[in-house]
Design a binder for these strands. Sequence first.
DNA 1: AAGTGGTCTAGACCACTTT
DNA 2: AAGTGGTCTAGACCACTTC
Lengths: 273, 273
Amino acid sequence: MPSSHVLPVNQDTLTASAVAAQAQAAVRVHSALDSGPRFSPLYRQIKTLITESLKEGQWRPGESIPSETELAQKFQVSQGTVRKVIDELASEHILQRRQGKGTFVATHQESRVQFRFLRLRPNEGPPKAQESEVLDCRRLRAPVDVARALGLKAGDAALQVTRRLSFGGVPTVADEIWLPGVAFRGLTLERLRSYKGPLYAFFEAEFGTRMIRCEERVSAKSAPSEVAQILGISPNTPLLAVERLSFTYSGQPCEFRRAWYLTSEHHYFSEFV
Amino acid sequence: MPSSHVLPVNQDTLTASAVAAQAQAAVRVHSALDSGPRFSPLYRQIKTLITESLKEGQWRPGESIPSETELAQKFQVSQGTVRKVIDELASEHILQRRQGKGTFVATHQESRVQFRFLRLRPNEGPPKAQESEVLDCRRLRAPVDVARALGLKAGDAALQVTRRLSFGGVPTVADEIWLPGVAFRGLTLERLRSYKGPLYAFFEAEFGTRMIRCEERVSAKSAPSEVAQILGISPNTPLLAVERLSFTYSGQPCEFRRAWYLTSEHHYFSEFV
DNA sequence: AAGTGGTCTAGACCACTTT
DNA sequence: AAGTGGTCTAGACCACTTC
């Protein structure tokens, strides 16, 4: 399995399928292990290859990837098979199709994306203007819980960013963001403050770390005094305590957030099907 | 082949209402040489027809729908077009495919489904056994806020169900469920208490109301005294206040819930991509 | 063996965008 | 006009389930 080339076709599986286009079964490499006839359909193999390319930054966020027909030729499969791959990646918000233009790598730069990860909505009226103040940014050794969340060893280098978010001038969120030190080498308070736009767009543009998925764990707690001070509220006000763990392409955790949401004028919105 | 991409009417194999719907779709001819009104692609028209059939209860939850080849014949399209429709409905959890067996109408009876709408997870360890106590069920006139949520007129008949949920014997959730009176005529405390299984399974089996999607709005509040009493906690304990609005096939709201979650040993889990 | 969903192909044409 | 994604077809074969 040559890892030297991601664009070139995986010789083992794909050229074989080209030769035996009619007899696909011949291509299906049953995983030589004894665990039964598990095979990977072509579109899965190709999805893996394309995901690898994205992981390695071969096509960067906002750029276009090759057309369906080009990819079909490259992988020696039909356009329909490539389509199925792109359909899936588009439904995962990893790629984005634009009819007549091409297929693009999704990015956090777009306005519609920014709202997908902002679950806080005003109880009434339209969304207010958001203001973000970076209070601090320091390089520390990862505490045990942070290290476990990020898949680091306790004591590894980590970055801690503290912020205050306000909506329409009202302080509403206080949070603490933890990042792995190695991936975010060179992050400073100044760079954070000078960047305009969403944090994830900053991460993706400046550090090549693209967040594609995240988990949140929410509970209700009384405001600790430090948090109450930041938000300008009285201690023991009930707040939402939101822990967010974000993941990048590879499924690697890339950010851990501990946030406090004031929900007197806002609420946390969640929809499911 | 119909180059106009309009469904033919096949009277034999369809119910009267389905035929009506189909005829309606057939009217949408691509009449325009110059950027006239948009017409739906075939698979959208077919998706609408199938959704209508589900709405009308032509195939009930848990039952199988006709095979892909049968549907393709009925609608006079290729199997691939039917596949695309079913793919979408399956991704929305409205249908469920089972290889070698057929395609089935999704149901709340299944264990894996029950967890999709239960966002409360233990902070540590595996999920504990859940116990549901129905405290009361009464027929009332809908208060203004409930009426607005459910799309009723204030004062319309409504049902109010109050419950207490416990996990591993620990009271954790107190909620109040509001249902439209007409759709749930005949619901009584006894029937609720005698039914084993998830509430949505009960609704779908006994009242033909299938919940397919819901929205939740979460905030942090101090426990009111009535709630504190039900949960056996001290008043003013911070709780999650969760308002849920559920929708049925047609997009019609069919349930409004006001719940209080104790999050000392549990948290509200949310994942997004 | 028959029936179901799952994968794949090759080719056609449509709609949209850019040149 | 050329290139892109979007829809649709007809047919093949595979994997899984049931009879």
